[in-house]
Design a protein around this nucleic acid. Structure first.
Lengths: 341, 341
DNA sequence: AAATTTCTGATTTACGTACATCAGAAATGG
DNA sequence: CCATTTCTGATGTACGTAAATCAGAAATTT
């Protein structure tokens, strides 16, 4: 049988009430007594039964997810996964609220973050926009002892407790490796298609991609990045134009979320050219394109895992508990035609 | 506030005791009354608070993991992960016991499974050896209302509740795709290295691999499979011999766990030949080989995820609960040099 | 040493569920 | 209609912890 609070009390020679005061860091215990109790806790190896504690506390975890507006498939998926998590709220004692802010708008994000002070919030997950003022706002929340995790896009240098997302530099390097190897020594140009270079994850992917390309595939030349703003129309136009303007393009890396436009352009203009294409995010569109051979590989982050991981980490952090690091590492999924789920 | 048993009682116009009888399927309730209570449960949307129920029951989950002996890195990792799970036992209310059986030995596995009957066991996880008598033994456990999940290697056609492992046919196909694409149209021979064709997962990987190769990469010829029994010495010898005997070999697919021997042979014999190599299971050896370029891609299943998933599914099944399917799908990880964790 | 102030102990209630007991009501048999 | 049998209600205890109250002990101040 695992030890309980009664065992601590007996071992330390104090009463239950004192044990409770120590455990829940309530005032009214002399330092000597406190140390005696803490020693007893260590000695008998007590670990608090979180389930029982939560039951007694009637604990619920009011969590806030701050998500950017955005009508691309990935964001839709992310919203859907958060809503999924909401349906499990009663089972998991969470109360999840979504706060929607304009995308790529630091002041709006800062306002949303600052508005949380004083509210009953057990944890905050946000898709970070990389800006000093956002970093400061996050740090203010952490200072106010509110657990914060970044989701999808990190905020390095801030005090956020955890990042639930993939390593985007590694993702870029991996894309370069796949594209380079798939092209098997051929010589030619590579077009990179991004949403916006203002977003940290897009910048990081490009950084990793360009670095590896330069280092290991010198026969492949990177063309200037096309910024499609993750908009199907714009993206489609840019890609069609690029393909029409050059016959040297043999590969495309789409590192943003504008794949609908890319695929449309490829079907219209790219057929029969033997283009090798690596894209990000598995959606119904990229899945279909993988299957029909329009796209050769898709790098993906599982939004469901990211959301569930964020919830677990926020709850654990709110309870002052640790978590299993390996379980919370978000992996970069690589899909080809043959390992689609 | 979420509804409790008291709310059911009030809504159904019965006493708490009757609600309890219905909820825990105890005898002594007329069908009409039972239906009244069940209707109330549906109406008010009651869901049992599992944490409180477990607390009241003093529930612990005695789980049994039946694992094959085997001194390859993957099995070592699997054992380590199960032991890790054991250290979390007190927190998760599990009591995990490992039963070790000889590898590839159906009668021994059957004996281990049958020995569980009558014991206090809340769930069983096993690395299945594919044989009719094993299937029958698993079905006997399921008939005895004991949750069973297969781990790493499945037992299709049995009544096991869940499979915590990867789709090995898809893994073989994915390996073929990567190898085929990495070779970029070159013509030559491919050597396949397996542990033993008696193991289902190895057979399945080969099946998927061979099928896709034949269908999409006809310029690549599959040589007869080398069976290295996952033994470094044997494997190393076989590979060295094969490479020495032919200069047409341009690719290797290692679908088993004998990578230590493979890597040794490659370093001795394969240097400078420009071989493309795809292997299974990320271990310290394959990781180093990926990094120094000896291996080009590694397909991996995360043993930690498999074990944690098995535990979650067994507990949920024992409680008659469902689980989040997406969370329990074990993914095939693809590692190249650039996305190593 | 008396008067405070600061600790500590003892005890109780609660969280939501499980489970047991016993008395009494309802249904069934004759 | 009475005697059974079968169902239902009322009630209490338990699980491990949180939190509150109040009395009394110990330390501190005056």
């Amino acid at each position: 049988m695992r030890p309980t609070v009664y065992d601590i009390a007996a071992a330390a020679g104090v009463s239950l009430a004192t044990v409770d005061r120590v455990l829940n860091q309530r005032p009214g215990v002399r330092i000597v007594t406190r140390e005696k109790v803490e020693a007893a806790i260590r000695d008998i190896g007590y670990v608090r039964d979180v389930a029982a504690a939560n039951l007694a506390k009637g604990r619920v975890y009011p969590l806030v997810f701050i998500l950017p507006t955005g009508d691309n498939s990935f964001m839709h998926g992310l919203y859907a996964e958060v809503r999924q998590a909401m349906t499990r709220s009663s089972l998991e004692r969470t109360e999840i609220r979504i706060v929607e802010v304009p995308a790529f708008d630091p002041p709006a994000l800062v306002a949303a973050l600052d508005a949380l002070h004083g509210q009953d919030v057990a944890g905050v997950a946000l898709v970070a926009t990389d800006a000093p003022e956002v970093r400061a706002a996050v740090n203010r929340l952490v200072d106010a002892r509110i657990p914060v995790v970044t989701l999808v896009s990190d905020l390095t240098g801030s005090a956020r407790h955890h990042y639930a997302g993939v390593d985007n530099i590694a993702a870029g390097r991996t894309a370069a490796r796949l594209l380079g190897r798939f092209l098997g020594g051929r010589k030619g140009d590579i077009t990179v298609l991004a949403g916006s270079m203002l977003v940290r994850d897009h910048r990081e992917r490009l950084e990793g991609f360009a670095a590896l390309m330069a280092a290991e595939f010198p026969q492949l030349r990177l063309l200037p990045v096309l910024e499609g703003r993750d908009d199907p129309e714009i993206t489609s136009g840019l890609v069609s134009e690029a393909l029409a303007g050059s016959n040297d393009i043999i590969g495309i890396y789409s590192l943003g979320a504008g794949n609908r436009g890319l695929i449309r352009a490829l079907k219209a203009t790219g057929q029969g050219r033997g283009l090798t294409v690596v894209a990000h995010e598995l959606t119904e569109h990229t899945r279909a394109a993988l299957q029909d051979g329009t796209i050769d590989a898709v790098l993906n982050q599982d939004a469901g895992h990211e959301v569930r991981s964020a919830v677990r980490v926020l709850k654990a952090t709110a309870d002052g508990q640790g978590f299993i690091a390996g379980q919370e590492r978000i992996r970069l999924d690589i899909f080809v035609k043959d390992n689609l789920p």
